[in-house]
Design a protein around this nucleic acid. Sequence first.
DNA 1: AAGTGTGGCGCG
DNA 2: AAAGCGCGCCACACTT
Length: 573
Amino acid sequence: MRWCALGRNADGRITAFGLNELGDLGERTELAPAELVDFVRATEAAQAPRWVWNDTAKWLPGLLKFGVRVTRCHDLRLAHAILARSALVPDPGPLRAAAAWAVGHEDPDPEPQQTTLFELDAPRLTAVPGGIEETLAEFARQRAALASAPGQLALLVAAESAGALIAAELREAGVPWDATEHDRILTDALGPRPATGARPEIMARLAEEIARALGNPRVSVDSPPKLLRAMRDAGLDVQSTSQWEIAEVEHPVIPPLLHYKKLSRLLTANGWNWIDEWVRDGRYHPVYVPGGVVTGRWASSGGGALQLPRLLRPALRADPGWTFVSADVAQLEPRVLAAMSGDRAMAAAGAGTDLYAGVVDSGVVATRQDAKIAVLGAMYGATTGDSGRLVPRLRRGFPDAMRLVDQAAETGERGGIVTTWLGRSSPLPGDEWLELQARATLPGASARDEREAKRVARDFGRFTRNFIVQGTAAEWALAWLADLRLRLNEIVWDEAGDVGATPARASGPAFARRPHLAFFLHDEIIVHTPIALAEQVTAAVTESAAAAGRLLFGQSPVDFPLDVRVAERAAKD
DNA sequence: AAGTGTGGCGCG
DNA sequence: AAAGCGCGCCACACTT
């Protein structure tokens, strides 16, 4: 059995179908919901098929709760999103016609503490189709599409599906979180936790100071329009209240105001309420949304996993006897660009561990800071300021890399689509965009329409310019994660030996006794592992990054060096 | 009272 | 009111 398809029928019963290499239907098994866990456990142990299901987020959490893991899957919802739009699929017609599969993420478990036993088996009308017939039909369409497309698209679907498994596993295991340390950080910055609705002590003091400096005892610091008016009344020449602008102004109100804004952000985004809501049993349980960003990056929904402030990183703390292996890739996106474009000069600049230093050595810019601004500007489409000024030099030094992003931008300006290295295609511009472009080319077009059309065309060009790089970087990261996950599965907790750690029970039955991924943020990962296994984990992390580079780019000279650390607390940086 | 838009800021 | 991409979340302000 190569694949095992699972469908949940309208009556709540589950049908499993084994499929062979050719996709022919094999054994059919009917299961009551309560039998699913044992069936998957046994089938996984005996044959480790690739599980085919409508939506990983609907199947996997219930299995993980019982300690059952699966090695591989094919997530039909995520694969549909890629295949129905990919320029590499010669005939996307059948997939596009199956519009019921074009649904976004929905949180299958929005209220974890509220058990709705009776709804558990009820089909959801708004969700992706889940019956066995629909599941098999969609799988057949997707296999046909993949068979007619170049091989890297199958790689992308496999990586995306592995990402779906990992996202569910990350949610189940949670991030080891020291709520006491978090509280200490908050108390240091804000003062003791105030009564509900009250301002923390230090913020209250700063608010008084702001009021005094503005000579306005009634100023509303939390309302940007009112604050702006108060600042202008006090004679400050500002157009907004945002940091980047007011930081330039000399006035006694500025230092306490900037400080207040920092604290206000900390309190509202990651304050005591956040701990109450997201941390339980020493774990922070964020919700990741694989494929949630058009470029293929993950998004998060609830808990803000992808915006965790650096200030709070020390609150990540490993369990007793356990530690973290943390790794991030140095300058992932420029390296991906160098590999995609085959730009030998840029590959050479990345030969060391610091690509920006390499760019300086190549002689096109004078300082590391200039190199960074120039490279980011090249990938984002900067046209003005320091960044815009430096980009043309890059164009001379790294012509192949720049040609690739410049062409992606031109395609977008014309309203075309671009495609990542493995085959994820960008969306077409919206109707409004098309109408504006059409209107601007008519004989009687107003100068204003022409200006607007040009502006939004360039906006879309910057989007497609960045899409190919950000999207391919996301593919590299998925490949890294997927490969690492399989390597971690091979690291065994030897029951007889002493790893010096008690099981991490808060990580759940599937992860209490093994090194497991605990955090992911675009180009960095954190693995929670027994201390005695940290060396093996470090090797796995390093090897998987090299494997990801080979998988995507073969023998490309570009490498992807990691910064790897072992520490029971995530570094303060 | 509930929904929508905006400013502002955290992350890569 | 970012110049220069992609996000999520919060509070406030405004609309229905």
